[in-house]
Nucleic acid binder design. Structure first.
Lengths: 348, 348
DNA sequence: ACCGGCTATGTAATCGATTACAGTCAAATT
DNA sequence: AATTTGACTGTAATCGATTACATAGCCGGT
């Protein structure tokens, strides 16, 4: 009943070979003859043998897991990305550890824990606001490879899987302009965030292209959360002159914004048009269904994981800054027009 | 530059003690004298030593990680629960692996992988629809402890952290009745799910208590997802006689339901009142803000993790079925009244 | 016939920490 | 004074798989 778990030695004995041969049959099948392989496999099946990962990892000096650093695990935007990462990693036999960088103990501790210590074979970082110093420095050799996704560090060689946020924002705003809007506001993310800057740039691009002035009062700062969308609506109410359309830098903020507007009797899209960014699951089912920029979230996760695994397999490549940059990838995004945008009152 | 990572031996040499003493100073500080401890700590700081977990786990015959089995990682309902689990586990020095049981390769493989093989020291299962056989059987001794959370297996001794779903549903429906509704429908979860049954029972409890008949045509089957809420709305439209209020077994379904109703010109709460279940983050910011039953999601995660860790520390206890059941815990839930419910037309 | 090269396998060292066991020394007990 | 006790520390075996190195057998070329 309580038989101990079979070890490689037991398999070897039953198959009539040495432990070395069993090990090879299982992890480098080409090295052993077909008959031997069959015998080993039979013995494995008979005993129900399962490898002890701690032993393998100890010997191979690796950990068998990758770590994903997420800002706000509770943000639904990340769920599909994680799911994509998990899928690829699990196919490669790797565990996925998820750590929330905004937890009380702080990001730095997490990074140190995972980056410097041998707790992971690779990192996927979804948070662009980490101490840059942690990722530069000379002693990069001993550390596991790092892949950024969604967000990234500007002015660094770190490879990243992203979308063209600037283009996305431009598409969103061009859509509003095409509808006839001339007074367009922006609910932005936190100022230190890369995405905020990129999307704000795209916002300005579109205005400039249409020769519309950018009104700084219509630039409202948020932090990508629902709550900050609500706060942005309050700011909007305070405005003497109000824009007829608003581009929100995340769907969550758009949702909070619309909800709060609605609470005060302002209708979307009749009184104000709103565009979001991300296309989270619920966006299509809000009232009104949200016009937004779709990011291929699952694909971002899968791609990031795939590339990280490539980097893990080629440790030398990390010395080569050019090769590193090329590991990055920009995935396509798409404007999804729904009902939260319409012609402005004045133009109808 | 490329100095190898320091090992316990290096620390021992610098501190002028043996490796055994270093090990003890680090993991059982009481066993060494204060001076020795200080010397070891100083040496650790000097070398930047970090323990190799693979080695520790190999020697201790454990894995240092717990696994969470989630149905649908992309469901935002689970994010806060995971975050609670991660918090507690990380404080205990445990890694958290998350596996999606609804992935293509199927739940059974995952279970086998994690439960039978030495890949985890404990499991938290958030999916009540797993093959029961996997958790019973005689050879339970060799396996890691399992804690259920949210969902559970009926007729089994497995401990679980839950809320009183039946009570929650009753509160929701009593609220509708108190508002004057006499024609109340239910959008349920998948029929094989425990939560579905519990909540349906609570629904009937409330009706029975108010001596209202339960109309089986107003019982619409769903699967907790947004999409199924949308489908439920279509079913509602097909009804000859329509209820004036609907209790949805999840917020996601309530959201899809309301959204689809709205798309066809039916207003909430003017034409129909809707109550959800869960109180996911976005519930308060839907239009209209959703009346729902709040589950303490972070607390559920923290509690499940805490209890699992207790079980891990007391391996003998698992033999004792009574003790096992007592490990379970029912956490409080709460009705949150917002704007998706109001008096019925006829009663106003 | 001999040698080099190749394939298939075995032997044993190795990864790095933990811990059973043994030993030391000083204080307490008889 | 002898013995016991307890606190502390060291030595070395151990966890289970991987892999460097050694070896054996076989084939083909000269």
């Amino acid at each position: 009943m309580d038989a101990k778990l079979p070890r490689i030695r037991d398999v070897a004995r039953i198959a009539g070979v040495s432990t070395a041969t069993v090990s090879r049959a299982l992890s480098q099948p080409d090295l052993v003859s077909a008959e031997t392989r069959a015998a080993v496999l039979a013995a494995v099946a008979e005993t129900g043998y399962r490898m002890n990962l701690a032993a393998r990892n100890l010997r191979r000096k690796q950990t068998g897991s990758i770590v994903v650093l997420v800002p706000h695990l509770s943000n639904p935007f990340f769920s599909l990305i994680l799911s994509g990462i998990a899928k690829v990693a699990s196919e490669a036999g790797l565990n996925v550890l998820v750590a929330d960088t905004r937890e009380p103990d702080g990001a730095d501790r997490q990074i140190a824990e995972y980056l410097y210590n041998n707790r992971s074979d690779g990192l996927i970082v979804l948070d662009g606001n980490l101490t840059e110093a942690m990722f530069s420095g000379d002693d990069r050799k001993g550390r596991p490879p790092v892949m950024f996704a969604c967000e990234w560090l500007e002015d660094h060689d770190q490879p990243a899987v992203t979308v063209d946020n600037r283009l996305g924002a431009r598409l969103a705003v061009e859509h509003l302009i095409a509808l006839g809007h001339r007074h367009i506001g922006h609910v932005a993310g936190p100022p230190e965030n890369v995405l905020t800057r990129q999307r704000a740039a795209g916002f300005r691009d579109a205005l400039a292209k249409a020769r519309l002035p950018a009104n700084e009062r219509w630039f409202i700062e948020g932090d990508f959360t629902l709550r900050s969308g609500v706060a942005a609506a309050e700011r909007w109410f305070d405005l003497a002159e109000r824009p007829t359309a608003v581009f929100c830098s995340s769907d969550a903020m758009a949702c909070g914004f619309i909800s709060q507007l609605n609470g005060h009797g302002v209708r979307v899209p009749d009184d104000v048009s709103v565009v979001g960014f991300d296309d989270i699951d619920i966006a299509a089912h809000l009232i009104p269904p949200l016009t937004t920029i779709r990011q291929p979230r699952a694909l971002i996760g899968e791609t990031a994981a795939t590339m990280l695994i490539q980097m893990m397999r080629l440790p030398d490549m990390r010395e080569d800054a050019a090769a590193m940059r090329e590991m990055g990838k920009v995935l396509p995004l798409e404007l999804v027009v729904r009902d939260s945008t319409g012609r402005p009152r004045s133009a109808s």
